[in-house]
C-alpha cells in the first residue's frame, strides 16, 4: 500500500502545482481586481452614468452568487461555443479549458469578494475620510493611502476564506477536462482500483494546501495588526 501512495503523490503534487494552485491564484488575483472595482462602484455616490454602473455591478454580484459554480463552468466552457453572433463571434466563443476555468473562477470569486471588500471599506469610520479630505487629499489618494490599508485588515479573514474556498472549488474544473489534482486522482484510481485510498490522499493534499494558506493568513494578520493595541480577540 505504501508503494501505491508514494507512486501517486508525485503525480498528484505535479497536477496540484501545475494546475490547481496556479488556477486558484490567478483567478483570485483577477477576482480581487474585479471585487475592488465592483465594491468601489457600489459605494460611490456619483450620479449620472454611475447609476447604470451601480446597477450593473449589483446585477453581476446577484448573478454569480445565485447560480451554482458548476453550472457557470458548463455555460462558459460548453455553452459559449454555441453563442454565435454573426459579425462578432461567427464561430461561437471557444475557450481552452484552462482559460474557461480562470474566467469562471475569477468572475465567481470576484462576486463574493466584492461584498467582503464593500463591507470592509464601509467599516472604516467616516472620520478617516474627513481627516484625509481635510489635509487636502483627493478621493483616489484617500482610498489608496488611508481607507484601503485599514479596510484590508478587516477584509483579510473573510478574503482568506474565499481564497481557501476557491482552492477547493478548482476541483470542479475536472468537469471541463482540466487535468488538475482531482482529475489525476481519478485517473490513478481507475488504474489501481484503490478509490478510497486515492480520494483520501487527494483530500489530504487539498488539506495541506489549505493549511499552508491558513498559516499565511495568520502571518499576514499579525503583520497588519501591528497598529492595533488589542491583538485580535475579544476583550474579556
Amino acid at each position: 500500500m505504501w508503494k501505491i501512495i508514494t507512486d501517486a503523490i508525485p503525480q498528484l503534487l505535479v497536477a496540484g502545482l501545475k494546475f490547481t494552485l496556479p488556477m486558484a491564484i490567478i483567478s483570485f488575483v483577477i477576482g480581487m481586481v474585479i471585487a475592488l472595482a465592483v465594491a468601489l462602484t457600489r459605494i460611490s455616490t456619483k450620479r449620472g452614468a454611475f447609476n447604470l454602473l451601480r446597477w450593473l455591478a449589483s446585477a453581476y454580484v446577484w448573478l454569480f452568487r445565485s447560480t451554482p459554480l458548476l453550472v457557470q463552468l458548463f455555460i462558459v466552457y460548453f455553452g459559449l461555443p454555441h453563442l454565435i453572433i454573426p459579425g462578432v463571434f461567427p464561430e461561437g466563443i471557444k475557450l481552452d479549458p484552462f482559460m474557461a476555468g480562470i474566467i469562471t473562477f475569477s468572475l465567481n470569486t470576484g462576486a463574493y469578494c466584492a461584498e467582503t471588500v464593500r463591507a470592509s471599506l464601509l467599516s472604516v469610520p467616516q472620520g478617516q475620510w474627513e481627516a484625509a479630505y481635510a489635509i487636502g487629499m483627493r478621493r483616489g489618494m484617500v482610498l489608496r493611502r488611508i481607507i484601503i490599508p485599514q479596510a484590508l485588515r478587516t477584509a483579510l479573514p473573510p478574503l482568506s476564506n474565499s481564497f481557501i474556498g476557491l482552492v477547493k472549488d478548482t476541483s470542479l474544473a475536472v468537469s471541463i477536462t482540466i487535468v488538475e489534482m482531482f482529475e489525476v486522482s481519478q485517473q490513478i484510481a481507475a488504474t489501481n482500483y484503490q478509490p478510497l485510498l486515492m480520494y483520501t490522499l487527494v483530500a489530504l493534499l487539498y488539506a495541506v494546501f489549505c493549511t499552508v494558506l491558513s498559516w499565511l493568513q495568520s502571518w499576514l494578520e499579525r503583520k497588519f495588526s501591528a497598529y492595533t493595541s488589542v491583538e485580535g480577540g475579544m476583550i474579556s
Partner: peptide, 19 residues
C-alpha cells in the same frame, strides 16, 4: 482643494490615521 490647503481641521474624535 485650494480651500482645504488654506484651512485645516481638528476633530473632536482626533481622527488620526491608526495604521
Amino acid at each position: 482643494f485650494a480651500v482645504r490647503q488654506k484651512t485645516e481641521m481638528v476633530f473632536q474624535g482626533f481622527n488620526l490615521f491608526p495604521h
